[in-house]
């Protein structure tokens, strides 16, 4: 294996990280408020509003039910409008964010739902405002669970990013497709797959470890 391939792989890893990290971060910036909104407007939520709840829930479900590859192609004009091109790593971030945000919103919602309702009630009894309950009770109490959700979101986005490689995205996915699939360099493909597996492993393990480390419910 020559230097060229190694350099290629290093660039690939860099691009993959860039895509996945950027997408995860942006998806969370958008997904946390959405998840909180769905949670809070649910019946028995802290600011019930069934209209908002239904609309947001519907949009989330709609986007989530579109297969990623189809979504990727369908929003190409949107992607072009935002980043000016439809190929390369930056262009992949757009569909990744669009696909991951509703997913993240649901993960956030699920994490918030795990917080004991009694704790929320105690906070209400102490005269907390809705915002104080969200920012000082719900999110901090759900932190370990949110972190677990984030590792799942990260690995899911990593998988999507490899798919994006098929249609002009960058990163390890693109290398696997271009060298392994089109040029029959099985070895290169295997290496990229191994790298992807390794990244998933590292993040999965690291995320779970960190989550249990910060979780004060666990006796140590």
């Amino acid at each position: 294996m020559n230097i060229k391939i190694i350099n290629l792989l290093i660039t690939g890893i860099g691009e993959t990280f860039y895509m996945v990290v950027a997408s995860t971060v942006i998806s969370y910036i958008l997904g946390i408020p959405l998840g909180v909104l769905v949670y809070a407007t649910d019946k028995n939520g802290i600011c019930q509003n069934s209209f908002v709840n239904r609309i947001v829930g519907l949009v989330i479900n709609l986007v989530r039910s579109v297969p990623f590859l189809i979504l990727l192609v369908a929003i190409l004009p949107f992607t072009r409008a935002i980043v000016g091109t439809t190929i390369g790593s930056s262009a992949s971030v757009v569909p990744l964010v669009v696909a991951a945000t509703p997913f993240v919103a649901r993960m956030v919602e699920a994490s918030l739902k795990e917080v004991d309702h009694g704790v929320v009630e105690a906070a209400q009894a102490m005269g907390s405002t809705g915002w104080q309950i969200i920012s000082k009770v719900l999110v901090p109490e759900a932190k370990p669970s949110l972190l677990v959700g984030m590792t799942i979101a990260f690995t899911t986005i990593l998988g999507y990013s490899a798919m994006a490689g098929f249609v002009g995205g960058g990163g390890l996915g693109a290398i696997a497709v271009n060298y392994g699939y089109y040029r029959y360099q099985t070895k290169v493909m295997l290496i990229t797959v191994a790298l992807l597996v390794l990244i998933v492993q590292i993040f999965q393990e690291g995320g779970l470890k960190l989550a249990s480390y910060i979780d004060k419910r666990i006796k140590r």
């Binding site: 009630e121 109490e141 004060k216």
Partner: peptide, 21 residues
């Protein structure tokens, strides 16, 4: 909200913030 700060409440299940000391 102001009135509630004048009424403390405790519960059977304690309802403490688990992630806070």
């Amino acid at each position: 909200l102001k009135a509630r700060r004048n009424i403390g409440m405790i519960f059977q299940q304690f309802n403490l913030l688990e992630q806070k000391s």
